Simulated scan of single mutants.
Amino acid sequence: MRVEIWSDIACPWCYVGKARFEKALAAFPHRDQVEVVHRSFELDPGRAKDDIQPVIGLLTEKYGMSEAQAQAGEDDLGAQAAAEGLAYRTRGRDHGSTFDLHRLLHLAKEHGRQGELIQLFYEANFAEERSVFDDTERLVEIAGCAGLDAAEVRKVLADPTAYADAVRADEREAAQLGANGVPFFVIDRAYGVSGAQPAEVFTQALTQAWGERSPLRLIEDGTRTCGPDGCEAPSRQS
């Protein structure tokens, strides 16, 4: 069974939702047969690479709230994250383009390190003091901790076309599926779960999707087969 997760590194609810989903997955009896794939979704796709601003300023501009309201929202998110065992800086974070981060996640996917890299990106953005938006070497360092080759990472970052089509394809697919926000979880292309739902919701969705998988129907017509112990010998005609 495959679970696809559309998310953005700049999305705090994606950070929290990932932890809740993983809690449900860890308790799921068939977890070893579940493949998790992370898909790209930029909350701010038109933002220039050098356009970086404090999160509080972004919230006041985007939603018309006061700084006090914006800070209260960050404090609430910090509490939600803490409840899931996640570190979260409620002061001093910044916001910028996540396009390069998504491109690196596609590189990581090719090397089987996508899950490791997205978690490190989340932790760097939400829990650590150094920005992930204004320092290329910072991204190289984080990707190296996920097991990627530094030279290959620098090569991707130096070429803005590398994996750009893969990022855009993910975003187009999200739109086709009706996802207008993240996190967005798609289970076996049969169920969609929107938002950072409680772990119990993910448990229910996983269980229901697993139970409705179509079992293999075997048609036997007398044709002989080969297996690990050899091939069936043809019966001798009398």
Rank of each mutant, 00 (worst) to 15 (best):
E137H: 14
L59Y: 15
E74Y: 06
Y163G: 06
V182Y: 02
T136C: 11
A81K: 01
G147Y: 08
G178T: 13
Q80V: 13
A127S: 14
T98N: 02
G64Y: 01
A174G: 15
E110M: 07
R130P: 03
L104I: 04
A175L: 14
R154T: 07
Y88W: 04
L148N: 03
G144I: 06
A72Q: 14
R172M: 13
R93V: 02
L77Y: 03
V182P: 03
E67P: 10
L59N: 12
E116V: 07
A166P: 03
N180D: 13
A151K: 09
Y122R: 04
E137Q: 15
D76E: 14
S131W: 08
L104G: 00
F121Q: 01
G112Q: 04
E152M: 05
I118C: 05
R93L: 08
A158M: 03
E123C: 04
G85L: 06
S131I: 05
G147R: 12
Q114Y: 00
A108V: 01
R113G: 01
A146G: 07
A179E: 02
L120D: 02
L177F: 11
Y63E: 12
V156W: 10
A127Q: 10
R103V: 00
F99A: 10
L177I: 06
A87C: 03
R93H: 00
A72K: 13
H102Y: 00
L148Y: 07
L157Q: 04
H106C: 06
A87S: 15
I118P: 01
L157M: 14
A68W: 00
Q71A: 13
E67A: 15
E129K: 15
G178Q: 12
P160D: 13
Y63C: 10
E123L: 12
A151Y: 04
V167M: 06
S131Y: 06
L139P: 09
D170L: 06
V132C: 08
A108D: 06
H106T: 03
M65R: 11
T98F: 01
Q176S: 14
T136I: 11
L139M: 08
G115N: 11
R89I: 00
E67K: 15
E173H: 11
E123F: 09
P160F: 03
P183K: 00
I142F: 01
Q69M: 08
L101V: 09
H106P: 05
Q69T: 11
F121N: 04
R154Y: 13
T98K: 00
T136E: 15
H102C: 08
S131L: 05
S131M: 09
R130I: 04
F99D: 07
H102T: 12
D165G: 11
S131H: 07
A79P: 00
G92R: 10
S131P: 10
L104D: 01
